[in-house]
Each structure stands twice: as structure tokens, then as C-alpha cells.
């Protein structure tokens, strides 16, 4: 019943804990994420068609692309939830995922959700620390179904953080939130990323979000990375500066939109 059974992968192993040890030797504590020639088909069409991508340790990469372009498929492959047919993937051992929906176990209290899978002895303390980081410590004993959408998503973030991941995978984590909450969550993720220094891959539809958060924006097109855009803006970043507008136009263009259409 566990996701990610070994499939027909050449060098890939779908299972979660096989990690880098199985795929490539781990030189440093947190190796870069490297993907080469990844192919994933659903039926006759290849969703990922020889895709290469690098996520250097500590870097924040935003992944954009049209709906159905394969962003979630790529993220699931990196998360060990999906097995590619072909290709080579080198991953850091500790990865954590934040999904678009919070995906909390409704029968476990918030802190138990965060602590799930941790060794027992200090699980509650570690969960509390992580919840404090996302400003949710006061709700640690609540049932998940009583949380607001934003609170639930922060609990999901705490559950990922508490594992101290080398690579944080985020699949449109703010898409279902209102604009104000989304802004606060973006600031929160930036702060956490700076403090913890993990690599992050953020799937998003929102060009502005990518420009506010990421070191690199990459655009998925026809199963490959079509555009790689370094974002060299100083942090903290603001909307509307001229440099921001230039990058924004470039990203929108590669998504097939003009800046006027998006505004």
C-alpha cells in the first residue's frame, strides 16, 4: 500500500528511504539535487521528456509551467512518490513535502501530525518548536479539522520543517489561500528558508511569487526545462521595481503571456 514501489527505473528507486545512498554516494551532508534525462510517460505522451534540472544545496528554485506541463509529476518523482521510466536522479537523503492541500491526519492532534514518524522520546518538544516557528504553537493540541485553511497549511509546513530537510518540496502550497494569508505565508517561507538553509523547490503558478521567493525560476515546457532565469534581486524583495518588472515580463513571455494580459 505504500507509495513508490520499485518500477522499471534504470537508476531510479521509487522508495523513499533508499535516498542518495542507493542512487549515488553522499559526499557532503547535503548534496545538490541533480536530475538528468528524466522520462515519465502517462500512456503514449511523455509528460517529462529527458528533463535535466539542478537544485544546488541551499538554493531556492521556483518551478513554473502551464497547467498539465508536468510540474507535480517532477515534484512527486523527487519526493519518491512517483517512479520515472528513465533517467538519473541524485537526491539529498532528507526530503520533505508540503502539498497543495494540508493533508493532515484528522484523527491526530496538530502536534501529533507534526511529530508523526519522529523518534518518540523528544517528538512533542520538537513538534512544539517547529509549530512555534510557524506561529502555531497555541494550536498544537487542536484537532486539524478545526484549523483555518492558513493554519492547516502552516501545520503542514511545520511537519516538513521538523524533519530538518536538505530539500524542501512545495507543490503550490499557497494556491488555496486568500491573498493576504498568501503574502504572510510567502514571508514565512522566506524566513524559514533563510534560517534553515535547505534547498527548496517551489511549484507555483504565480510569477510574482516566484520572483519574490526564488534564486532561480525555471519553466517547464514540452517535458523539459525551457527557461532558466536567475533572479538576482536583492532581498527583501518588493513588487514593482524596474528590475522586477523586467524579470516578470521575461517569465510571463515564456509562459505565453504578455505582462498586460497578466495584469
Amino acid at each position: 500500500m505504500a507509495a513508490g514501489r520499485p518500477g522499471r527505473a534504470l537508476t531510479m528507486d521509487g522508495s523513499w528511504d533508499a535516498g542518495a545512498a542507493r542512487i549515488g554516494p553522499v559526499a557532503q551532508p547535503a548534496p545538490d539535487t541533480k536530475v538528468r534525462g528524466l522520462v515519465r510517460r502517462f500512456g503514449p505522451t511523455a509528460v517529462l521528456d529527458g528533463l535535466d534540472i539542478d537544485i544546488p544545496a541551499g538554493r531556492f528554485v521556483a518551478l513554473l509551467g502551464r497547467s498539465g506541463s508536468g510540474k507535480t509529476t517532477l515534484l512527486r518523482t523527487l519526493a519518491g512518490l512517483d517512479t520515472a521510466e528513465q533517467g538519473e536522479v541524485i537526491l539529498p537523503p532528507k526530503r520533505a513535502v508540503v502539498f497543495q492541500e494540508p493533508r493532515l491526519m484528522p484523527w491526530k492532534r496538530v502536534w501529533e501530525n507534526v511529530a508523526l514518524g519522529l523518534p518518540d522520546h523528544d517528538a512533542r518538544d520538537r513538534a512544539e518548536l517547529a509549530l512555534r516557528e510557524v506561529e502555531l504553537a497555541h494550536r498544537m493540541d487542536a484537532w486539524p479539522l478545526t484549523l483555518s485553511g492558513g493554519e492547516a497549511q502552516r501545520a503542514g509546513l511545520a511537519r516538513a520543517l521538523v524533519r530538518d530537510p536538505d530539500l524542501l518540496l512545495l507543490d503550490e502550497p499557497f494556491a488555496a489561500l486568500d491573498a493576504l494569508t498568501r503574502l504572510r505565508m510567502q514571508a514565512l517561507v522566506t524566513a524559514l528558508w533563510k534560517r534553515h538553509g535547505m534547498a527548496a523547490l517551489l511549484v507555483t503558478h504565480d510569477v510574482d511569487e516566484a520572483l519574490l521567493l526564488a534564486d532561480h525560476a525555471v519553466v517547464l515546457q514540452r517535458g523539459q526545462i525551457g527557461l532558466q532565469l536567475p533572479i538576482d534581486l536583492p532581498r527583501p524583495r518588493r513588487h514593482g521595481t524596474p528590475a522586477f518588472a523586467v524579470l516578470r515580463g521575461e517569465l510571463l513571455g515564456s509562459l505565453g503571456l504578455s505582462a498586460e494580459e497578466a495584469a
Partner: peptide, 22 residues
Amino acid sequence: PKLVEVAATLGLSRAGLIRHVV
């Protein structure tokens, strides 16, 4: 199945999956 996936990403064993999710 979405929660089952979460259990996989959290590194739960099969016994853990059964106990905490199923």
C-alpha cells in the same frame, strides 16, 4: 490515498502506516 502518500513521505514503515493512517 493522499494521506497514504503523506505517510510515505514521512518515512513511516508499513506497520506505522497501518497504525497511524489505515
